[in-house]
Structure formats: structure tokens, C-alpha cells
Design a protein around this nucleic acid. Structure first.
Lengths: 107, 107
DNA sequence: TTGTATTATTGCAATATTACGATGTTAAAA
DNA sequence: TTTTAACATCGTAATATTGCAATAATACAA
């Protein structure tokens, strides 16, 4: 009864789900797109750009950060949030592997 | 104040989030992998294979179906659930476009 | 028509996510 | 040191998701 039952899946399946979850909210997709397009990563701009409150943006950034997609300086003033391109490409590769190994053989 | 605020994003951003949401639960990833590997799509096998109840599997299948990833016979006995490969590849392309157009330019 | 097998739907409980106001923290400027 | 700017964290409310038991619907066989 209820949610979660996450220990019954293989590691690669769980990994795909974990990755997808990051992109499963438009705010996070928008944040990723925005920080990747900015030369200077002034962070409060994200709040203005997206149109959500600062705590909410901060929360979404934490989700993005938790999977290792952020790089830069994270403490104090003049913080720089940047996309970790290597990790990002790793995600792309993992998802493509999932897609390429999932091909229908019936119907 | 709570959830949802989904009307403030551009269409392409919302689309990526919608697609990702389907893969954001391991049960659905497992279902997709399983039905794609089976020659005959006997559906109750999914229940046995994944280890969740029949209503829960049915619910996940509905989510997968809603985005057009399923093909086949959907009513009555001996139902055949199959992956819509074209739609699946379309998702892959859309996600790759997102990845390829999101490249960091700072840090 | 009456079973029977198979999937869908409903109703409900548990948990997770999303969002924001209030407040705390941090580092640099004044 | 005090102020200030920029984020993080906490607490809380609203909503969404997940999961299953019970039940309904469907199609085929007998």
C-alpha cells in the first residue's frame, strides 16, 4: 500500500529511471537549458527567467546537483552554476544504450 | 501553493519532461524492456516478471500507452502489448536533440 | 448462456513531489 | 564589525504518484 518498491529492479533499470527523473519536470529542463546558454552563471537570474520562487529553484538545483550534473562554485556570494558537460554526455550515452537495446521483436 | 505550474514553459521543454516522465519509474522501464524482449506478448507474464500486482502493472501500462508507446490488440482475452518502435525512436530523437542543443559555454 | 481467463477500473491508503514564506547561512563590501 | 547580496534550509500546504484489494468488464470456450 503506497509508494516505493524500488528494490526489485536491476541496477541498470534503476539507473535509467534515476536519470529520467531529473528531466521529468519542466522546471529542471528549463534550468538546464538556461544555465547551459549563459556565459556567466549568475544564479538569481534563473529565478527571474523561469518564474518560480528562489527556494523552489534552489530545490530543483539540488535535484540536478545530486546526480552530478552541476559544476562550479557552490558557496557564498557570486555562485556559478554550470552544467557538467561530461556527466551530461554520460547521461545521453546511457539513455541511448537503453533505447538501442530496447527493440520490439513482436507485432 | 503546492504542485503544478505547468503553463509557464515552452512546448519543447514540456515535451521533454513528458517523455522523461514515462521513463522516470523503474517499473515502466522494466515493462518496456520486457515487452520488447518477448516474441509473444502474453500480458499477465509482466505481472509475474516484474513482481507488482496486476492493477499496478495495468496502471503503468496506461501511462506508457498514453504517450503512444504501445501497439497491438488492447481488448479482451489474449491481449498483445507491443512497443511502438517508431514512436520509441521518435522519443530517442527528441531526447538526443535536447542533449545536443544543451551544451555548456561557461566554467 | 454459463463459466473462465484476462485485463481494466474504482476506491483508498501511503508516500513523493512541488511550491513558497520565513528564516538561516555565507562571503564580500562598506 | 555591520551590512548586504545571494543561496540554502526549514516548515508546511497542496497536489501527484504509487500500490493494492475489490470489483467490473471483456472475449472466448464449453
Amino acid at each position: 500500500m503506497g509508494a516505493s518498491k524500488l528494490d526489485i529492479y536491476t541496477d541498470d533499470i534503476s539507473e535509467i529511471a534515476e536519470i529520467a527523473k531529473v528531466f521529468a519536470h519542466p522546471a529542471r529542463v528549463a534550468i538546464l537549458k538556461y544555465i547551459s546558454s549563459q556565459e556567466s552563471c549568475i544564479c538569481n537570474d534563473i529565478v527571474v527567467e523561469i518564474g518560480l520562487s528562489q527556494p523552489t529553484i534552489s530545490q530543483h538545483l539540488q535535484v540536478i546537483n545530486k546526480v552530478g550534473l552541476l559544476k562550479g562554485n557552490f558557496k557564498g556570494k557570486s555562485i556559478c552554476y554550470c552544467l557538467d558537460v561530461e556527466r551530461f554526455q554520460q547521461f545521453q550515452t546511457l539513455l541511448n544504450t537503453f533505447f538501442n537495446t530496447t527493440k520490439a521483436t513482436c507485432c
